[in-house]
Each structure stands twice: as structure tokens, then as C-alpha cells.
């Protein structure tokens, strides 16, 4: 599991996950993702385009990071999941409580929105 990041304008941090977000992948990514998401303004976009597979363990990692961000008035937006990953987010209803966007422009707008 690879975890990379870029800092965009407006204090947004984009974190890219690549690989398989199963038990091994989640264990490998958890600490790094949590650390990278602890950005000052709390505006985080997680790019899921490179995630080929996500199990419930991966969902748990996403939820834990999103909760940590909202607890300090930040926000996590998910970007561009593959269809099978989007299906997991839909079945677990995470797409109802954490925004999922299909393009970067929408994700940037969403992560900066208040409320």
C-alpha cells in the first residue's frame, strides 16, 4: 500500500492511496494516513483512484481519520473511487456521511465548505 501526498492551495492536503486496502494494506497505511491527515487546517482530500480493492477494514481506517478531522472542525472528502470501492462505500453508507466526489474541482469545493 502506497501513501503519497501533495499540499494544494488553500491549505488543502491531498493524500493518494494506491494498492489494496485490505487487512495488510490497512495496517500498512493506517499510521501514515493518520499522520498525514493531521494537517493544520484539517482540509483533506483522499484520492482513492489507485485503490484497487477496499474491504471493511479499509472503511474503518477512513472513518477513523474522518472522525478525527471533524472533531477539530476539519473535513475529509473522498475522491474518485473505483466502482468496486464506491460500491463498498455505498453498502456501508459511508457515502452518506462523508462526501465522495468524482472530480478534483468538486472535491476542493466540498472540503472547503463549512457546515
Amino acid at each position: 500500500m502506497q501513501v503519497e501526498h501533495d499540499d494544494l492551495e488553500d491549505g488543502i492536503r491531498m493524500i493518494r492511496l494506491m494498492g489494496r486496502l485490505d487487512l495488510e494494506g490497512a495496517e500498512a497505511a493506517d499510521l501514515k494516513l493518520t499522520s498525514l491527515a493531521a494537517v493544520k487546517k484539517g482540509f483533506v482530500i483522499v484520492d482513492l483512484d489507485g485503490v484497487e480493492f477496499m474491504s471493511s477494514i479499509g472503511v474503518s481506517v477512513i472513518v477513523r481519520v474522518a472522525r478525527a478531522l471533524t472533531s477539530r472542525e476539519g473535513r475529509l472528502v473522498l475522491l474518485n473511487p473505483q466502482p468496486n470501492v464506491a460500491d463498498v462505500l455505498r453498502r456501508t453508507q459511508i457515502d452518506q456521511i462523508s462526501l465522495v466526489c468524482d472530480d478534483l474541482g468538486a472535491a476542493r469545493t466540498a472540503v472547503l465548505a463549512t457546515g
Binding site: V63, R91, T92, Q93
Partner: peptide, 22 residues
């Protein structure tokens, strides 16, 4: 239970939900 907010979302417990729905 299905969470309505992130505050209600517990980190685990979704594996069986996925299996039973799929």
C-alpha cells in the same frame, strides 16, 4: 446500526454487513 453522522460511525463492524448484503 447505520450511522447518520460521522460521530455515530464506529470504526468497525462493517464486514458482516458487507457479506450479508452481497
Amino acid at each position: 446500526a447505520m450511522p447518520r453522522t460521522l460521530d455515530e460511525a464506529v470504526p468497525g463492524g462493517r464486514g458482516l454487513l458487507l457479506v450479508r448484503s452481497i
